[in-house]
Design a protein around this nucleic acid. Structure first.
Lengths: 201, 201, 201, 201
DNA sequence: GATGAATGAGCTTTCATTCAT
DNA sequence: CATGAATGAAAGCTCATTCAT
């Protein structure tokens, strides 16, 4: 029965993941989770300290990685010569190489962090990502020495990009499909950003 | 009557609008609303039949307009010669003319409809808009006689555009600022769409 | 408008009568009553002191009469020779003569008193009638010098008779039909009583 | 578990039975029930799904039996030669034999079904019994080849009989007393019915 | 380890009644 | 005369969490 122990915990975690994904943290119901995990309330509290503890356990790893990436993103030098091409398909190939190693981490747990964490101490994670993306946008403005006067659009485009990532991940479980969708989105944002910043179509 | 009836009703409506905007329909609490509107539960039910009735009253007008626009969008012929320009600023001017008359309707009530209506009979409104936008995207693909192989991105881009509109409206109450942000977004999407569909940057 | 005054009161009384008849005193709702009477809550309280006051006004007259009859029933000497007949039809004629003058009082207001007064100060009226009927039953036992050993059935038969009267009145508004049903019932009870007391069929 | 589960459940069921018996289903209050059962609202919902579920649990068994009897009553051949006697006491003995096995089921739960079920899905039970009794009455009319012109009294007598049964059960908890009262009532109704149908006393 | 009994705050809604206008 | 705003208790029910067994 020692082995079984972890099995129950796993069942709870999976049931909780599904519940959180569907309803978000606040509307999720422990009663439904334990029913779906085929265990009891009391036992739930043997394995977890409470509702938020389950959530924490689900996303802790991906959250730590996420924070690491956020805080070290400036080290990532991706000034690949590929980006100088005018052919979108060349970009696609470059982006695929870039994204591929990240895909295993862009899973449902990451979705929880980005889209289902309202009400937990992790609800600021999304904002952190927005900040980073927004700063990138500002850097692009400065880099092009442009006096683009609508810099306020930065956080909004960032939120949009994230919401698009979220929707891409939500739309399928297939990792290749997810890569494809994410690449198209990033392409879309790159093109859009260059367009409005350069002022030419 | 001690107080002019409409004043209390207005207080309730405003408190409810704020509550719904912040928490969404389902998590909104009538008790908080009436406390913030400085009245009592019993009195709340003198003015409204219930929680959903308040929401309906807040949203009804903008919803009817919304449905009208959705159902008649094909009649809107905007084949303006402006769009043939290569200059983004020319587009900006054209979009401003297009968007200006709609701005008074793109208010917090519209936000409620798009982003806070889950749990009400209006929760499908957003999907209807997504459908229309997605169909537009598909038409663009066909129009360019392109065999763009990532059509699945259509609904995702549509959701993104809407989430961007929502964020634009949420970011400020100033109508001019809102126009500006919406225009940048639409520009952004137009450029991005043309880019990924044409394959050239 | 002076004449109108009583008209409103009358509308309220009629709406209340219908509501009380259908739902009983406690489940009756003033809101429904005033809606059906096409007036307002405030105005309701201009005419009546409250829920119970309407009820009182509806049944006061019939209640006073009822109490008078109850308290003076022993004076009613109806030892009519008719009752010595063996023919039920002869009884029918006699009963009709007896009941006819009472019929105008055995109306919906009386129904309210007997069947819809729970929760008011009149809820004991029915019990008083039960007492009188039960005493009659006991007198019959003594009169026949019988040692009928099931005297406990007395109050039950009394309640039954009343419930039958109530059902008769509820089943139709037609006064002749009501008389007919009441007569059959009383006959039924007379026959039944004589039967079980005499021990012969 | 601190207390043997069934004990609390039993306390709730008994408190509910008393509350339903006194006030009927609709006016019964869960808060009063749990107070009388010395537990809490939350705990109530650990044992029962809701108000109607408690009622159902109280009534289910007796209801199923009731429906079975209603639907199979025509199979009950009680053409006992006893009924040909002219002596009421002979009938009493016969009725006692007939009623005795049914008595354990004619308890407070049955009372709930007949007299306290308004507002539940069981509220039609009484009407079904009325129908059966009324049809019996009609059969008696036809059997005697009589043209008794007051057949409308049938449903009223049926309701009366049931209300009498209800009152008998309400008047005491003693099973022998209940039998006695029920027998007297049935006798009373048999005699009354024969009397008004035959036209002779 | 596993069970589920117990708790109480909170939810939306209905109600009779008071009273200022 | 008439209006309806205001009130607060009570209803049935859901919830996350604690803890004795």
């Amino acid at each position: 029965m020692q082995i079984k122990k972890e099995e129950v915990k796993e069942r709870i975690l999976q049931a909780a993941e599904a519940e959180f994904l569907e309803l978000g943290y606040e509307k999720a119901s422990i009663r439904r989770i334990i029913k779906s995990a085929k265990t009891t309330i009391g036992n739930f509290y043997n394995y977890f300290e409470g509702k938020e503890a389950v959530f924490t356990e689900l996303i802790e790893e991906v959250y730590n990685m996420f924070i690491y990436v956020i805080e070290n993103h400036h080290k990532w030098n991706c000034d690949n010569s590929l980006w100088e091409s005018q052919d979108v398909n060349v970009w696609r190939v470059g982006l695929l190489q870039l994204i591929k190693p990240m895909m295993p981490k862009l899973d449902n747990r990451f979705l929880l962090l980005m889209d289902c964490s309202k009400g937990t101490k992790y609800e600021t994670a999304k904002d952190k990502l927005i900040d980073v993306l927004t700063k990138h946008f500002i850097e692009h403005i400065e880099e092009f020495s442009l006096d683009y006067p609508h810099a306020d659009i930065g956080p909004i485009l960032s939120k949009q990009l994230i919401s698009g990532m979220v929707e891409s991940l939500r739309s399928t479980d297939n990792i290749d499909k997810r890569s494809e969708l994410l690449i198209e989105q990033v392409l879309f944002f790159a093109i859009g950003t260059m367009g409005i910043l350069s002022g030419r179509l």
